[in-house]
């Protein structure tokens, strides 16, 4: 099997109260907490999806990035075979800690179902899939640090074996108000070759 060339079609990063799409700032706020920043971004892009407010911070972060990259990509009249390939370092630890704190007092033991459902990192993939009606391949990996070699290889396998027409790749790290999201869309057409060096460069921009 000859491996086809693959291309980065668009990319987006979210950190330090700023959203950058294809190298240009599309939204920013004064320094604030993530809940406030994410709410303002949601309002700014008129996402109109009230379930957003029920999500935990990791899901909100992934959802915002996916929303910005996929909103022009999704054709609601057909099935969109866009695989989701995500990874981070802290898994869902931020929500896990919150849940643990909520059940640590035996005298006041009321586990919250709404917090508990987010104690898995791949739940954010479910939120994105529901929003965009994706019934595609999806995986969430945990790495010590961003791993462009793995991401490039995995996305290429998905595309070359025709498991997906495009792959939305993402590093979405959130713990204790520290966050960074870097998402990019890979397909078989485009101008920017999908290579480890390019992905690394865009991640570090």
């Amino acid at each position: 099997m000859t491996a086809k060339k693959t291309y980065i079609q668009s990319f987006c990063s979210i950190q330090n109260n700023e959203i950058i799409l294809n190298g240009e700032t599309v939204f920013n706020t004064e320094p604030t907490v993530f809940s406030d920043f994410s709410k303002k971004a949601y309002q700014n892009f008129e996402m109109n999806y009230p379930k957003f407010f029920k999500m935990d911070s990791l899901s909100k972060l992934a959802f915002l990035g996916a929303e910005i990259l996929l909103r022009k990509e999704i054709d609601a009249t057909k099935e969109n075979n866009i695989a989701l390939l995500f990874a981070n370092k802290s898994s869902s630890l931020d929500t896990d800690v919150k849940f643990q704190n909520s059940i640590s007092d035996k005298e006041n033991y009321y586990p919250s179902p709404a917090v508990f459902v987010y104690t898995l990192p791949n739940i954010c993939l479910g939120e994105i899939s529901i929003r965009h009606q994706l019934k595609s391949e999806n995986s969430f990996f945990i790495f010590e640090a961003f791993n462009p070699v793995f991401m490039v290889n995995y996305a290429n396998v998905l595309l070359n074996t025709k498991k997906a027409e495009k792959v939305l790749c993402g590093w979405v790290e959130y713990y204790n108000e520290e966050y960074k999201a870097f998402l990019y869309l890979v397909g078989t057409e485009g101008n920017t070759e999908h290579q480890k060096e390019t992905v690394e460069k865009l991640y570090n921009k």
Binding site: P50, K54, Y110, S112, P113, A114, V117
Partner: peptide, 17 residues
């Protein structure tokens, strides 16, 4: 209000708490 099944569980917890 368009609540879902997780909301229902949350309401059950609220009644108790």
């Amino acid at each position: 209000l368009g609540l879902d099944s997780i909301d229902a569980l949350e309401l059950i917890v609220m009644l108790d708490k």
